[in-house]
Amino acid sequence: MSDSFVNDSIEASVSKSRILAVLEKVCDPEIPTLSILDLGILRDVICHPKHLEVVITPTYCGCPAMKTIEFDVIRALDDAGYKEVKVTMQLAPPWTTDWISKRGRAMLLKEGIAPPVESKDSLGQGIECPRCTSHDVSLISVFGSTACKSLYRCGSCFEPFDYFKCH
């Protein structure tokens, strides 16, 4: 198996896309429909001669999900037959919400979490209620159920909701 992990070969690119297909099923434990690819925390997959290296980056310094994600990556690849896997943590460049994919944003919305708006300095500007799409929203707390979210309230349907804040 390990012989196929040779860079610059057709075999390598085939195995890399297979690996990505496996990793696509590893999700953020807090948002179980959002994969680590769509969240933008998977930075690289490197095929070494004897092992696979999966490079991930944390969202926030204190993100308690990173260890779980590391185990989930190893378990998923192990199930797919990749026995020698090393997960490494890369800090720079730091993760940004700009790395969340289009599909990831759609997944957030489906979970009732307003996806981050593009502009950097916005606290309230352009945020849409995930339930009724109203823009009449107000901030309750910058710090929501996890560090990456803020808590808002909709002025139209009066429901509170999480906003995945720009970072």
């Binding site: 310094c61 204190g62 993100c63 707390s141 710090f143 929501g144 560090a147």
Partner: peptide
């Protein structure tokens, strides 16, 4: 309640930073 959550969020960032 919001403060409790905010404080825990910020504390986690500090502990995470300490780990690094």
């Amino acid at each position: 309640l919001e403060e409790d959550i905010a404080m825990a969020n910020c504390a986690l960032d500090h502990v995470g930073r300490a780990r690094l």
